[in-house]
Amino acid sequence: MTTPSYYAPAGGLPTQAELLTDRAIVTEAYTVIPRGVLRDIVTSNLPGWTKTRAWVLARPIAGFATTFAQYSVEVAPGGGSDHPEEEAAVESVVFVLSGALDLVLEGESHVMEAGGYAYVPAGATWTVANTGTEPVSFQWVRKEYEPLAGYRATAFVTRDQDVAPREMPDTDGAWATTRFVDPDDLAHDMHVNIVTFQPGGTIPFAETHVMEHGLYVLEGKAVYRLNDDWVEVQAGDFMWLRAFCPQACYAGGPGPFRYLLYKDVNRQVRLTTR
């Protein structure tokens, strides 16, 4: 795989001459946050981080995400955090979009460039820093870890370029998934994968399932079926899909359509309070 090129938000503001019409959609079944609304005025500072700003794409809130939070994070040169996570019960995935991120995870140092992927288990010791001269942008997915007796998720760092996509059955490579953890490993209660469609590739049925999704589009464009609607999406857009929201996809080309996909998995449906 050649050096990847993913979309990362750059902020800024539209001019006063531009129309406000955009593709932002919020419904009970799904939400689309297009890249055009990720502007400077909607960023947040993160406690414990320096020279950093974040666009919060999803958070647990009534009528929206219930299992996870997801951010687009930009760290300026000299910025970072010695204590990125305040909640010991929260696990994370960090996926680098651009720049170079210095990660120290459980005592091991890593330089993560575009395509770099780190799984940070709940309670892990880690730090992040930008020691370069250019900003670094990454996706950060956070979820409360649900422990399971006899299993323990452990930290690892890899790259998109180093994990072979698995073709979906009977698709002749038009639809493939890059799986960073074994889907049968019950130590993991969330998967953050990359889904790739070649031009013209489709999800040929309306998926309707219990897993909640967060989708950040890394490359390309497509028409996505969300509940009753067909919605155009492109690199830099974010989609949230509630559990059981019907979903399908048609990749429009001219290049591959790729997105980072969160879903909650591998746990019994909880019917009582903890």
Rank of each mutant, 00 (worst) to 15 (best):
V163K: 01
V195Y: 02
M190T: 10
V223F: 15
N193S: 09
S137P: 04
G79K: 00
E87N: 13
T21C: 15
T208R: 12
R166S: 15
E212N: 10
R142N: 05
K51P: 01
V231S: 14
F156L: 05
R242D: 14
F257Y: 11
R274Y: 14
V56P: 06
L105V: 04
D170Y: 15
T171E: 05
V56K: 11
V136R: 00
V217L: 10
V233Y: 05
L241A: 07
A65H: 02
D229T: 13
D237Q: 12
T125W: 12
S81A: 11
Q161V: 13
A155I: 02
A153R: 01
W49L: 03
R59F: 14
T43E: 14
W49I: 04
E28H: 09
A10H: 08
M112L: 14
T202D: 06
F205Q: 15
V231M: 14
T52C: 04
G173T: 10
R258N: 10
Y6G: 04
R179S: 11
V75P: 01
S98Y: 01
Y145H: 12
H191N: 12
G48Y: 02
L97I: 03
R258H: 03
L13C: 10
V265N: 09
P135Q: 02
T177W: 02
T133A: 07
T67A: 15
P47K: 13
V217W: 01
A187G: 06
G236V: 02
V269C: 07
R39A: 07
H188V: 07
T43H: 08
D172K: 10
G116S: 03
D40T: 12
P254F: 05
W140M: 11
L97M: 07
E85V: 14
S72M: 12
L103W: 01
E134V: 05
Y224E: 13
P4E: 09
E144K: 09
G79V: 00
S109A: 11
E113R: 05
L105P: 02
G79W: 00
A89P: 02
T27M: 11
D189A: 07
L20D: 11
L186H: 11
L19G: 14
Q139L: 12
F68H: 13
L105S: 04
I194L: 11
H83A: 12
T27I: 06
Y30W: 04
T208D: 14
A251I: 06
A100G: 03
Q161C: 05
Y259Q: 03
A114W: 00
P199H: 03
V136F: 00
S5D: 09
L101W: 00
V120F: 02
E87I: 10
A176N: 06
A153I: 01
T52G: 01
H83I: 01
L97E: 03
F257N: 01
T133Q: 06
L101H: 00
L271R: 12
T127V: 03
S72Y: 10
V42G: 13
E87C: 10
Y259H: 11
V90S: 06
I33Y: 04
H191G: 05
T125G: 12
Q161N: 10
E108L: 13
I203A: 05
Y119R: 07
G236T: 04
Y6P: 01
D237M: 10
P254Y: 09
T127S: 13
R23Q: 14
G220C: 08
R258Y: 04
G99R: 00
V233G: 03
G36M: 11
V111T: 08
N130A: 00
T127M: 03
P34M: 13
V210R: 14
